[in-house]
């Protein structure tokens, strides 16, 4: 049976997933070797059980991310922090010095082009946590893949190592923040 791989997108800009797609023709080889069971680039609604490897992009910044992080941990054997936001909080955590009210004021009122208004209490919008946290502060993480975003080569290296049954340890040349 092919390894069951998932990718997830928490509090990030999707840049890490763009970089994943940057693996170009290697994606074809990858498609032969894995079963992609969950991903923002696949139409699957719920995170499935019994996942072998999950690549998780983004910091944990709101209630939905927090719940998702725990769902991933319960259902995936090997969790990789995918990119700088997952690993350090990075840009997502730049809001940590401000309160949730200040952030909403900025995002929905000051920077609005049309109809400035705060989300009502009935909206389905996830609640911001007090601070955005790196993934490993919320759930145990098994490996780290840095970069903002990680390059396609770094991702390929990590995925290839995992498929070969090894825990990926990035060689010094691939250790890179920013």
């Amino acid at each position: 049976m092919k390894p069951r791989v998932a990718t997830a997108w928490l509090g990030g800009c999707s840049g890490c997933h763009m970089s994943f797609l940057d693996m170009d023709e290697r994606l074809i080889e990858l498609a032969d070797r894995i079963e992609l069971v969950y991903s923002p680039i696949a139409d699957v609604k719920e995170f499935p059980p019994n996942v072998d490897v999950a690549l998780v992009e983004g910091a944990v910044t709101n209630s939905e991310n927090h719940e998702m992080a725990h769902i991933i941990r319960r259902n995936a054997r090997f969790v990789v922090s995918f990119g700088d936001c997952a690993t350090t909080g990075n840009v997502t955590a730049m809001r940590n010095r401000f309160t949730s009210e200040q952030i909403q004021q900025r995002a929905y009122i000051e920077l609005a082009d049309l109809n400035p208004q705060l989300p009502s209490e009935y909206t389905t919008l996830a609640q911001l946590l007090t601070t955005a946290r790196p993934l490993h502060e919320v759930i145990p993480v098994d490996a780290y893949l840095h970069g903002c975003p990680p390059t396609a080569d770094q991702i390929w290296f990590t995925v290839s190592e995992l498929l070969a049954g090894r825990v990926p340890v990035l060689p010094p040349a691939y250790l890179r923040y920013g």
Partner: peptide
């Protein structure tokens, strides 16, 4: 600081980030 992080093999930070102001 980045170069030091690479030199010591810093793959992640094990203490909680303080995110100071």
């Amino acid at each position: 600081l980045q170069n030091l992080a690479y030199e010591v093999g810093l793959d992640h930070v094990r203490v909680p980030y303080l995110f100071p102001s």
